[in-house]
Amino acid sequence: MQSLTNRSKVVVNKKMSFMEKIYLPEIAKGMMITLRHLFKKKVTIKYPEQKRPVAPVWRGWHVLKRDELGRENCTACGLCAVACPAEAITMTAAERKPGEENLFREEKYAAVYEINMLRCIFCGLCEEACPKEAIFLTDRNVPVDLLRDDFIFGKDKLLEGVQPEKRIDISVRARAHRQIEN
């Protein structure tokens, strides 16, 4: 088999030579290696202050979009939940009441919309399945938390705000995809 790096060593069960048997030279060799590593550049990325650079097409934390008038796009059709290979999405549909036209674009909307972030594999199939351009994956990391329950993201963590400054930018990936296609 061809090895990926030229550093692989074939393990043989040979008898140890005298120099190996007294351990000390080998230990000294090993200690020199660790000493070198002591001064090497560290690979740690101090999340959340620093973030790992990601590709422009990288998929992270979902967003539920609103349209230009600030109405929720999602119509609770459930196509995303069907498409989801990890079965991470659940929702409860509700009917739009008269007077709520400024809140929801369609007559049916998702009263509850939950994604279990621990199940999600960030494949992006929900985004592809959505007929209403309601759900998108963004370039944000899913924040760290301590309890499993806190990783079930409801609309409070998924839905973007109405005000322009609270909108979530999804153009990075869209642009990158366009570039790739051309």
């Binding site: 590593h37 002591l38 090497k40 560290k42 690979v43 740690t44």
Partner: peptide
């Protein structure tokens, strides 16, 4: 800290 540095990490900070 030393463990971390020898493993190319930075340890508790």
């Amino acid at each position: 800290k030393i463990a971390a540095f020898m493993q190319d990490r930075i340890g508790p900070d």
